[in-house]
Design a protein around this nucleic acid. Structure first.
Lengths: 207, 207
DNA sequence: TAGATTGTTAATCGATTAACAATC
DNA sequence: TAGATTGTTAATCGATTAACAATC
């Protein structure tokens, strides 16, 4: 089962498993079945078992999954058994909001630097992080070992910021701007766009 | 082709088409082919044609799609040919950030009311909207005809807020809290979770 | 042992892409 | 007419779910 390529759908579910397993762990619960997981997460238990089985045999037949062990395994799969440093460009409200999530991100990922190009933003403090000018991005990315970039600038500036991230050497980008951004094939980019999300929701409203 | 049930994947792409078509419209461009759309949006042209064909014959063979006409059609499909009123609970940084998106949402959707349960938030102004106490939610939802609810509260409070939205009669919910929220089957809920998004991105980093 | 639950194969379901006749 | 591009069918690809032997 090793060394198959894993579908994006599977990868998207792993963090959801991880989050709930962490909750179970905090509630001192030691074992969980795919049945219970499925119930809580609105997923098919067979799907959960299959997702996990891509990466190894993590469960015990007749018993279920050891919560702590599974957390370790998923963290490893997601490369979250190390601290991943994240840089963010755009010190507006959204950037401010996201930098607050460091607590949720726990010890797995960390927003380490915030940048902006606007004079009036530079130097201000956001969540204990001084807002840095864009000029310092390449240097800071290298120094801090930043591997992921977050874009929270207006749509028109998104491509420019993405280019800067790519040149500075980040490996993945999360773009919140409502715009399609192009990056070289070796860079992973995900779009988290509030406006398209909301617009697609409207489709499901009653006449 | 009418009255098939349309897949979620298709519905998620429609707002992306719409956004780019609006850009073309602003650039005074009258006609566009599935080829060009695909190039700009990183999608297969056949897929775009098929997506649109679910809803009607919007193009002209040999010519392409009339930008303005297609905008009208997609807006109608997404029920965005009317103003959809949106309520938001959680006047923190994220709530504040999202309420700023009213300009991006254009004349299609509008965040009409912001609520919070914290005494120190209530009464403050966010983007010309006075933050209202949760107690007023049912009444305001009815008065303003709010049909969509946005949740930007901490994870532990998300379910409570969702319940309040459902009881007040909203038809769809967009949840930003990092938690699975349960709603009755007739309510549409989408999860826009920054933390799982970022965690799944980590999977694609190099060793 | 009996009951529970995994890992995995097979069956189903769904979504994407290719190909091309129709036609502007 | 020649070239371009749609709408749609068929082919491919991929993801989900059901079922069950293996086994704790």
């Amino acid at each position: 089962m090793k060394s198959m390529k894993i579908s994006e759908a599977v990868v998207r579910r792993l963090p959801i498993y991880l989050r709930y397993l962490n909750e179970l762990n905090m509630m001192q619960i030691q074992t969980v079945s795919s049945q219970e997981l499925g119930q809580k997460l609105n997923l098919n238990p067979a799907q959960i078992r299959k997702d996990l089985a891509y990466f190894g045999e993590f469960g015990k037949k007749g018993i279920g999954y050891d919560v702590h062990y599974l957390i370790e395994k998923i963290r490893h799969i997601l490369k979250l058994d190390q601290i991943i440093h994240v840089g963010l460009v755009g010190a507006g409200n959204l950037g401010h909001a996201l930098s607050n999530y460091n607590t949720y991100l726990k010890d797995n990922m960390k927003i380490t630097a915030v940048f902006d190009s606007a004079k009036d933003k530079i130097g201000k403090e956001i969540n204990h992080l001084k807002v840095l000018p864009m000029e310092e991005l390449p240097e800071v990315v290298r120094q801090h070992g930043i591997r992921v970039g977050i874009i929270t600038v207006p749509a028109v500036e998104a491509q420019i910021v993405a280019n800067a991230f790519v040149e500075a050497g980040v490996e993945a980008i999360l773009n919140f701007a409502p715009a399609i951004v192009k990056v070289p094939a070796h860079i992973r980019i995900h779009h988290a766009d509030f406006t398209t999300e909301l617009h697609s929701l409207a489709y499901y409203l009653e006449e």
